[in-house]
Design a protein around this nucleic acid. Structure first.
Length: 376
RNA sequence: GGGAGGGUAGCGAAGAGGCUAAACGCGGUUGACUGUAAAUCAAUUCCUUCGGGUUCGGCAGUUCGAAUCUGCCCCCUCCCA
């Protein structure tokens, strides 16, 4: 059953690249696309308050089904009135299904047709996730968007493995769709298929037939070369419906984000900006900055003079370095605010450029100024 | 004045004749991080022109070989007077 309050309204398509500008209507408000979505796995974007998340201009934020199932448990979240009330965040939210954990906790799991048996990464308890179980958990958590349970296939993987896994993920998608009952929650399908054009095509076409509220491209940004990732987008996106949102999973560096948008992606998420911020690495208009470097010890200039974030408007590199070096949590928070605001402002600029059919120029200008092929 | 224990790299601390330029921790420096097992992880940290050079409080010894054994000296801590 399609979610009634959920719809992507495409407002403009960039004439040269095909990049899309739109408005995504969700039960928790309207947000503009394309957008970068901060990740808040455990119902918190690490170190940030809901007010801070809002103030950086975020549209949708993520939480994670597997992690919230383990702690505190979906029933607690449901008793709190759902994840929005639980974490006091009233903007749109999305729950990832735990499919990524099938990949990242691969030593601790066993996959069968029925589902995946995990070993709880905290205490070793056995956990069983089926597509139906995941939907049940996601409905209890109550985000605006739920993701189908999938297997995030490692790269590289053989054709045979990829085909079997992709077909199983398609069967899981159908089972999840049949199990999904909440009408105030959208459900997305996830295109797998590895680096094989026919499998990506098949996955995209089969999912489209099932009529999800949106479609994600998965199995990306897990260590594959950049051109492979871009190819995986191309192989899938042309078979996805124009009028539904397209979500590129796990992408968070500047070049991938801009390239994804150019290819017609509407949504992206990544832990990268928040994680590397906590580890002292910042994305700025002038490229990558490692705030712990000794050269910033007496640098009393802002981290990024072109940035409008709270951190850049109020603090110096010397102070940020000091906080980082001393392990002060306020430092992690200021740096997280900056990296998220930086990426989100870049995407805001992308939306403006799309409206004016100059996305290509915008993308090139940003990347040239950034000057780092790795993109962060 | 008497007694006991110590002095090892920036700091703390192992080592008690060759495998030791010297474990380990901290601190320092550098790097990685992409649907968060990540406030984590990795590398490096006496000097060097990469051949080597100079080290374990100081000096003098013993030994083929000493941070490690001996003597003297200097300094520190604690206890008793």
């Amino acid at each position: 059953m399609a979610c009634a309050d959920f719809k992507l309204e495409i407002k403009h398509v960039d004439k040269k690249t095909g990049a899309r500008y739109g408005v995504l209507h969700t039960p928790h408000g309207d947000v503009e696309t394309p957008m970068f979505m901060p990740v808040g796995t455990l119902a918190t974007v690490k170190t940030l308050s809901p007010e801070e998340i809002k103030s950086i201009g975020s549209g949708v934020i993520l939480a994670n089904t597997y992690h919230l199932h383990i702690r505190p448990g979906e029933d607690i979240v449901a008793k709190a009135g759902g994840v929005h009330k639980f974490m006091k965040y009233d903007g749109p939210m999305l729950t990832d299904s735990g499919g990524f954990q099938v990949f990242s906790l691969s030593e601790k799991r066993k996959i069968s047709e029925e589902g995946v048996t995990f070993k709880n990464h905290l205490n070793g308890d056995k956990i069983f996730f089926s597509p139906e179980k995941v939907i049940e958990i996601e409905e209890k958590i109550g985000a605006d968007i739920a993701m189908s349970f999938d297997e995030c296939i490692p790269y590289p993987a053989s054709y045979e493995y990829t085909k079997n896994s992709t077909l199983r993920t398609l069967r899981w998608a159908k089972r999840g769709l049949d199990a999904h009952k909440r009408e105030d929650q959208a459900l997305f399908g996830i295109v797998q298929g590895g680096n094989y054009p026919d499998l990506r095509k098949m996955a995209a076409e089969e999912l489209t037939k099932m009529n999800f509220d949106g479609y994600a491209i998965g199995g990306t940004s897990i260590g594959e070369p950049k051109d492979v990732c871009f190819n995986m987008i191309d192989m899938a996106i042309k078979y996805l419906p124009e009028d539904k949102p397209r979500y590129l999973m796990g992408v968070g560096s500047l070049d991938y984000i801009l390239e994804g948008i150019a290819k017609g992606i509407d949504m992206m998420d990544c832990v990268l900006p928040t994680r590397i911020a906590r580890h002292g690495t910042l994305m700025t208009h002038a490229g990558r900055v490692n705030i712990k470097n000794e050269k910033y010890k007496e640098d009393f200039t802002p981290l990024d003079p072109e940035c409008d974030c709270y951190t850049c408007k109020n603090f110096t590199k010397a102070y940020l370095r000091h906080l980082y070096v001393c392990g002060e949590q306020f430092g992690a928070r200021l740096l997280s605010i900056h990296n998220l605001r930086f990426l989100i402002s870049i995407v805001e600029g992308a939306r403006e450029a799309i409206k004016e059919d100059r996305f290509e120029e915008y993308k090139n200008e940003i990347l040239q100024k950034y000057g780092d092929s790795r993109g962060f």
